[in-house]
Amino acid sequence: MSAAWRASLQRFLITGPPLVYLLLFFGIPTLIMVLASLRLPGEFGGLAPLWETGPSGTELNLSLESYGRFFSDSLYAWLFFKSFLYALVTAVACLLLAYPLALLIARSPGKRRDLLVLLVILPFWSNFLIRVYAWMIILGPESVLTRTLNALLAGLGIAPVELLFTPFAVLVGLVYVHLPFMVLPLFANLEKHDPALLDAAQDLGARSWQRFWRVTFPLSLPGVLAGAALVFIPALGIFAIPDILGGTDSILIGNVIKQQFLDARDWPFGSVLSMVLTALAVAFAAAAAWVASRQRL
């Protein structure tokens, strides 16, 4: 056996299994979803047969009907826009909360730094539903927070408010679940800054706020961008948080996709919504990458 042949055999044997697995259980299902968006809904849910043999011969059951339905009803465009707004507010709120934390971690000495990073990571690895459930307790009508708030409001002569099952609760849940995704890329960026830059700025007479706004923050923009993409993109498609913490007014696109697949059982239309969501996610990821490369961030 020649060495070149052996090398390519080795490459094939190592790359092959994960490649085939991911093609089979990620690549093909994604392509099937593209096809499903062009098919007709089945009589009892799911998909209608792809081929149909009638008196006039065999016909292929493909149509743009579901896409037509999507574009003819502004409700769905509105739902995407609403999901976009929720994801945007989430990303901004995460940035505001994450920045001081990331800065503190980056400026801590080695040992303590590792501990502080671990403390950010641990909640991320705890079960997603538990983290959402925790807010169901905190914002519930009988909770300490709600009762205290309403007692204060009563003192001011304002009618009591509800916290759970509101858009506010959904946003709190979204921020809570996605916060670590913002802290870690920010920290990874801030960690690399040369402290000499801040010393130089100070020697030149910059005050602490000036040092932050004119040195640290501009240098951290790649981290901000990476964190924003990591928060924004998953937040776009979330369905469990509005499902658990939201009311009827905080339904997002993820909830409608779930509904189409499990309740309404109109798979072609659910696939259309999924395709649009995929397109948006890819577009935002590409935009973030483009901005990063253009600015040489």
Binding site: P18, L19, F26, I238, L277
Partner: peptide
């Protein structure tokens, strides 16, 4: 392989869920 390995982590989870359901 890099695209196939990283995409499932990067895209919203619901997309993988529904496409596997159809599959």
């Amino acid at each position: 392989l890099a695209i196939l390995v990283l995409s499932p982590i990067a895209i919203p989870e619901i997309l993988m869920g529904v496409s596997l359901l159809i599959f």
